[in-house]
């Protein structure tokens, strides 16, 4: 409890302040937990009740119907055709898409980012180190939305951010391009260098005394060996934090996958869930006939017991991997703290 000194904690005024602080912090915790609680509450609410304009804190008759329906929906085993057709593919397809992209990004991005940070922190010297540092973190200063269209064009004609590949000078042939658009690599490759993680790693590597690395050099370790055998074991907690952040950001990314994916069986869960939600909320159409058909199917779905409650179930499913990732990383984080000693 660094916030509160141990000495004099039993004095009445201190005690009062202590409890005020505890209540304040509890309020903060409740504020953060409430949306999560609301998701759970809504996921066990019957479909009609979930649609009512008065908010439901806890349903009168909790039911697991939505969970069962979502299970049928995601495995496409429902008898009800309207429910079955809500999603074009079983949920595990989207889940595995997301997992593949997130883990692949981690696998490539962590070594690249951490080695870049290590090189910048310990191997580069002089003004060059400052310039490359500014260059790397400069990418943090450009909002992602600004680069959305160039990035999109780049996935179409990798590595040219142009509407079409330029011609090789003197010929009519275009330069060879790699079309990563509509493949998982369109999500993985832009995530390979993560400026925020770079900053995180660099901040940590800066705290490692130069003398440790110099001692290892005198001992005869090559630069890579020093990184692998001396620096990496010291940095496990930072790797844990960085991988959790990176995993979360790829898993939760929505706008970019929405832009680059066309084929329905390649989209990640975030996009799949949002597509589903769109079908609930914008049941609009240009022709009256279509609209009528949509309304009919909506009613059918609602009668089957699926409304917001089902979306909440999907939302919870979407959060679970991040939660698991956090538990894994937390273990390493704690181990790292024990190893290095808290000072």
């Amino acid at each position: 409890m660094a916030l509160f000194p141990k000495v004099g904690r039993n004095q009445p005024r201190m005690r009062a302040a202590w409890w005020v602080l505890v209540i304040f912090l509890c309020g903060g915790v409740a504020l953060h937990l409430f949306p999560f609680f609301y998701m759970i509450a809504l996921s066990v609410t019957p479909a009609h009740e979930a649609l009512s304009p008065t908010p439901v804190i806890w349903p009168k008759e909790p039911t697991l119907a939505a969970w069962r329906l979502v299970f049928e929906l995601t495995t496409r085993t429902s008898m009800d055709t309207a429910v079955r057709d809500l999603m074009s593919f079983p949920f595990y397809v989207y889940l595995s898409n997301s997992l593949f992209m997130a883990l692949m990004t981690l696998l490539i991005s962590l070594p690249v980012t951490s080695l870049a940070a290590y090189a910048n922190s310990k191997l580069q010297r002089g003004p060059m180190a400052r310039w490359s540092f500014l260059f790397f973190i400069g990418t943090l200063m450009v909002p992602g939305v600004v680069t959305l269209i160039p990035s999109f064009l780049m996935t179409r004609n990798f590595p040219f951010p142009l509407p079409s590949a330029p011609l090789i000078p003197g010929t009519d042939d275009p330069f060879p391009i790699l079309r990563i658009w509509d493949t998982p690599w369109a999500v993985i490759i832009p995530g390979v260098f993560n400026a925020f993680n770079f900053l995180l790693f660099k901040g940590f590597f800066d705290t490692i005394p130069d003398s440790i690395i110099q001692a290892a050099r005198v001992d005869g370790g090559s630069e890579f060996n020093i990184f692998r055998r001396i620096v990496f074991p010291m940095s496990i907690p930072v790797y844990a934090v960085a991988s959790w952040l990176q995993f979360g950001s790829v898993w939760d990314s929505y706008l970019w996958p929405l832009v680059v994916f066309q084929t329905p069986d390649r989209i990640p869960t975030s996009v799949a869930i949002s597509n589903l939600m769109n079908r609930f909320i914008q049941a609009g159409s240009t022709s009256a006939q279509q609209a009528a058909a949509q309304t009919a199917s909506m009613r059918e779905i609602l009668e089957a017991g699926l409304s917001w409650n089902g979306l909440m179930v999907l939302g919870l499913l979407q959060t679970i991997p991040i939660f698991i990732m956090f538990i894994i990383c937390r273990e390493y984080l704690m181990r790292g703290i024990r190893l290095r000693g808290l000072k």
Binding site: Q214, A215, V218, P233, R340
Partner: peptide, 19 residues
């Protein structure tokens, strides 16, 4: 420095903290 065969003792000892 790897090939010079020197032994060096540092002011802050510079022990490898994880070993």
């Amino acid at each position: 420095p790897q090939d010079r065969g020197v032994g060096m003792v540092f002011q802050d000892y510079a022990l490898y903290p994880t070993r």
